[in-house]
Amino acid sequence: EQPLRVAGFDIYPTVSIGAVSTEGGPDAADAAELLRRVELAVEQAKTAGRGGAAAYGRALETDSLSRLAMEADLRNAFVRGEIEPFYQPIVNLITGAVAGFEALARWRHPKRGLVPPDEFLGLADEMGLMNDLGLLMMTQSARQLAEWLHRHPGAGKLFCSVNLSVGEIERANLVEDVARIIAESNLPKGALKLEVTEGDIMRDTAHAAEVLTRLREAGASLALDDFGTGFSSLSYLARLPFDTLKIDRYFVLTMDKDEGSAKIVKSVVNLGRDLSLEVVAEGVENAHLARLLLDANCHYGQGFGYAPALPAQEAEVYLNESLADGTAPIKARSA
């Protein structure tokens, strides 16, 4: 770990070590088996962080088999229809009524029950399944939104947001798929909202601008997600065809304690209004934050103070209650 001088720079190498003993039984004396076991050990050392060490044990076999089983289950989950969108309400801060939903992927495992997204989204990315997941989420969410609009004409301009995964904006057939989904669902223009991160845009701004323009022409509306957390460029924002800015939940959660966060939130809201963009604040956990956002003239709020992501049937109940009395049943408004 001593520094090495390379091309005028100090390089600080680290080493991850996996160890195995030959005293693990007759099969442990075989060279190929020893290599297999020590590879498991070194992978375990790497997952613990840089510069770690780990010794082989039977638990590593269990972990390895569990991952293989998880991968097989996840591939089959798409075929068996176990992946589905849950819907988190997005609420008009002025009226208190539900304005739309964000669709978030959930996995109903036949044995494990509801698998948290942080346990399978990373694996789906590693397995190259994110484009399949994105197409599934858009298709199911568009159909569900179309059903709600048909059954509840009073819902007006109800929308549903779907996240584009990292790199999905570069997928060859994305625009064609979005146009087909909107046409098949007979959705109003702008009802399907696609959320894109700054990182995706900055990889190739010219290409992103072209794709975003075509997506909007296909009938989708567009939201810039987690605004302020990346290398924001106002020139990009002025040139790209976004309809909505989403403020990252970190700034919202800390705006009542941190003056800097409060100023950032107000600045983003003002910027959005000046550019005729709607602004959605994530992370609304209580009535106090909802009040601060309303005072800042923010358009919409989203967070656990209103509701978590809900299965389709529960989300429709939530929508019904909002339509019945003109406001959503929101904890944040009465807490």
Rank of each mutant, 00 (worst) to 15 (best):
A124P: 07
P153A: 07
E119M: 14
Q140T: 10
M127Y: 03
L149Q: 15
W148T: 07
F159S: 09
C160N: 08
K157I: 00
G128I: 12
D132E: 13
R143E: 12
M137T: 02
T139W: 02
E147R: 15
G154A: 10
S141Q: 03
T139S: 12
D118Q: 09
F159H: 11
M138T: 04
S141T: 14
G122I: 13
E119N: 14
C160Y: 00
G154R: 10
L145S: 06
M127I: 03
A146C: 08
L158W: 02
K157A: 13
W148Q: 08
E147H: 11
D118Y: 08
H150P: 00
G134N: 15
L129F: 04
L145W: 09
A142E: 09
G122N: 15
T139G: 03
L145G: 05
R143C: 05
E147N: 08
H152L: 10
L129Y: 02
L121P: 01
W148A: 05
L121I: 15
F159R: 10
L158K: 05
G156C: 09
M138P: 03
L135I: 08
S161V: 14
L135Q: 11
H152E: 05
L149W: 00
E119L: 15
L133H: 04
T139M: 04
W148I: 07
G134I: 10
F120C: 03
A146G: 07
M138C: 11
L136I: 07
F159I: 01
K157M: 04
G156Y: 10
M138A: 06
L158G: 01
G122E: 14
A124V: 06
L145V: 07
M137E: 02
L129P: 00
G128Q: 12
N131R: 12
W148M: 06
R143G: 07
L121F: 01
S161C: 15
E147T: 11
G134Y: 10
E126N: 11
T139H: 10
L123R: 14
E119P: 07
G134P: 14
D125C: 06
G122Y: 13
G156M: 09
M137H: 03
L121K: 01
E147V: 11
A124T: 06
L149V: 00
N131S: 15
L121W: 03
E119R: 15
T139R: 14
A142I: 09
A142C: 13
M137Y: 01
G122L: 13
L123F: 12
L121S: 02
